[in-house]
Amino acid sequence: MASISIGTIAELTSAKVVCGNKGKSCLVEKAFSSDLMSDVLRLESENLLLITGLANLQAVRTAEMADISYILFVRGKQATPEMVALAKENGITILETGYSLYKTSGILYSAGLKPVF
């Protein structure tokens, strides 16, 4: 299955990697865009990128519980220091882009990042 590195995802969406690993070895296979956390919690995919405009502690907690290692915040939403600390504690990589949810999803979909369903 095709997978894309975090570095490439950051480049494609002009995103900043706020914390975590940006190495070429961090490979993402699928992505899911949502602002509703229970929608995210029902997924079972591994190596998943969560794309969301919900920039609060709950987004990071949700990733922690669901074993999601990569979060991309859209619409210029910024992770608070508390969120970054929680992400670091759990080995979660956070990216931030100024692009909208639609634009971000469209770019990454075109680049070959698969949807969960």
Binding site: L36, M37, S38, L41, R42, N56, Q58, A59
Partner: peptide, 15 residues
């Protein structure tokens, strides 16, 4: 606003 209210929680628990 906090990211909840999809109506999926109880079904997720059940699963």
């Amino acid at each position: 606003e906090m990211g909840f209210g999809a109506g999926m929680g109880l079904s997720n628990m059940n699963k």
